[in-house]
């Protein structure tokens, strides 16, 4: 079972790679103008033609298809994009298979060490991405960045973090393990996904303001900035309470396991830092006098602190959370 899980991970990485290439093809062929003009509006919305009129009766709904993409290269780009999206679905299925078989092999939830943690967080990220894509297909081009992140993280996990299946140590045997770790993983997965529109927004808004130097040129064919920014916010607003809950659950568990709810262990300290930074993001976003770029940078900073907690703390510090299996 464990070997099967390992194989599935490898196949999933390959599938993400294929999806990434396919997204890149879409990107290269894409008709920038057609995408940028209409993509801001959610696809299933009807765009009203004519406002007002006598008693409002004149406003017959008119559907404006979002994917107005004339030209053959446009059609081919769309095809490549659709292929990419479906390959991502396949990759996510393989990925899920890898997580599940790992859990079966270990006879427990597959979250016992850092390798399994990264494996599951990335799966949550990709599952949430597919959900977003389902609702807002016009965001498909972000898949290029998402699959890139997937390939990088999974390859890193496979090469640097891999450990054999082992049972849990007594300290982890608690139902709080399931509650705390699953919510942390879930929130981390959504935060991970949130970075993709956040970074895309920063590039795209620069592009829309006429910047034509290196990172901004990447955003030429991305959806409009406002939509990216809104997606960034929605993902973070969704993940933040879950993260808050996870931290609280961690404190309750710590009280039972270590005799104190909060003791400024390095993991706890960095969870606190992440929480404060994300709270800062939400405040900045809610304050009209603060520019959206600034707010978005804060969200990216928040993710860096999450990464620091996941990798940095496990590698550099020793604390009570030393079950990562990387010694």
């Amino acid at each position: 079972m464990s070997a099967l899980s390992d194989q599935l991970v490898t196949y999933a990485i390959l599938a993400y790679l294929v999806a990434m290439i396919s997204h890149a093809v879409e990107y290269a062929l894409g008709n920038a103008r057609a995408v940028s003009t209409k993509a801001a509006a959610p696809a299933r919305e009807l765009v009203g033609a004519g406002v007002g009129g006598a008693g409002g009766t004149a406003g017959e709904p008119v559907a404006v298809p979002v994917e107005t993409r004339p030209g053959r290269s446009g059609a081919r780009a769309a095809l490549a994009g659709r292929i990419a999206a479906w390959v991502t679905v396949v990759a996510a299925a393989l990925h899920l298979g890898a997580v599940v078989t790992r859990g079966i092999a270990a006879e427990r939830m597959p979250w016992g060490n850092m390798y399994e943690f990264v494996l599951t967080v990335t799966f949550i990220g990709v599952a949430a991405w597919l959900a977003v894509l389902w609702r807002q297909p016009q965001l498909r081009r972000l898949g290029l960045f998402l699959t890139l992140v997937m390939v990088l993280l999974l390859a890193f996990a496979e090469l640097k973090l891999y450990v054999q299946v082992t049972p849990l140590m007594p300290a982890l045997k608690s139902y709080w393990f399931v509650i705390h770790v699953s919510t942390i993983i879930f929130a981390s997965g959504i935060f991970l996904l949130g970075v993709v529109p956040a970074a895309s927004y920063l590039m795209r808004s620069g592009w829309e303001q006429g910047k034509r130097s290196f990172p901004y040129t990447l955003a030429r064919r991305l959806p409009a900035a406002a939509g990216l920014e809104r997606l960034t916010f929605m993902l973070h607003a969704f993940a933040f309470p879950i993260f808050t809950f996870a931290v609280i659950a961690g404190a309750i568990w710590a009280e039972a396991a270590w005799g104190r709810a909060w003791g400024w262990d390095p993991k706890e300290t960095w969870a606190f830092i992440s929480w404060v930074v994300y709270a800062g993001y939400l405040h900045a976003r809610a304050t009209p006098s603060i520019k959206r770029n600034v707010a978005t940078w804060i969200s990216i900073l928040g993710f860096l602190t999450m990464l620091m907690n996941l990798f940095g703390v496990n590698f550099f510090f020793t604390g009570l959370h030393s079950y990562a299996g990387v010694n």
Partner: peptide, 18 residues
């Protein structure tokens, strides 16, 4: 704005503790 700055100071101040 002050609240935001204080929030960030708090985050930064926690770093040496880890």
């Amino acid at each position: 704005r002050t609240a935001l700055i204080l929030l960030f100071l708090l985050a930064v101040a926690a770093i040496p503790g880890s």
